[in-house]
């Protein structure tokens, strides 16, 4: 076992992990942070996407020991109390989800995308979420939701 210390959604966490424990398993099984989902487990689908030190990564293909000292943000960290993040609100308002399985990864990825590129074109949104697969929506409403959230954030409505 290896000791790790990291920040998850603003809270400091110290834990002992087996080196082979994947970050997604550590989050879900050890920390009960079950927003990030396990989809393909082969780094294709993006359902496990989290923010690691300000970069989007797929938590199924990173070991928890690699996150030692890191700042991790999951979908649980997006809302401010009862107030949804503008992205979450926009996904709700625009039918940006149906079954919801991909949604935590979509939201976490879109969150970082808008920090990297606050006013993306639809094409840039599509390329930005190219690592996140949705099998329900056909993506149109997801792109629309991200576009709307960007506009609202840029207009100063909502946090971040």
């Amino acid at each position: 076992m290896t000791g790790i210390s990291l920040t998850i959604n603003g809270e400091t966490v110290e834990a002992e992990v087996e080196p082979r424990t994947l970050l997604i398993h550590f989050l879900r099984e050890s920390q009960n942070i079950i927003g990030p989902h396990i989809g393909c487990e082969t780094s294709h689908c993006g359902a496990c996407t989290v923010d690691l030190d300000g970069k989007s990564v797929k938590a199924c293909t990173i070991f928890a020991v690699q996150a030692d000292g890191a700042d991790v943000l999951t979908v649980e960290g997006l809302a401010e109390g009862a107030e949804l993040h503008p992205l979450q609100q926009a996904f709700t308002d625009n039918h940006g989800l149906q079954c919801g399985y991909c949604t935590p990864g979509m939201l976490t990825r879109a969150y970082r995308l808008l920090l990297e590129n606050p006013d993306p074109t639809d094409e840039e949104i599509r390329m930005g979420i190219a690592g996140n697969i949705c099998r329900c929506t056909g993506y149109q409403s997801i792109v629309k939701a991200i576009r709307e959230a960007a506009d609202k954030i840029n207009a100063g409505e909502g946090a971040d």
């Binding site: 780094s43 993006g46 990564v57 797929k58």
Partner: peptide, 9 residues
């Protein structure tokens, strides 16, 4: 190559 998340790694 791959997608944004994978390119970060």
């Amino acid at each position: 190559i791959a997608d944004p998340q994978v390119r970060n790694c």
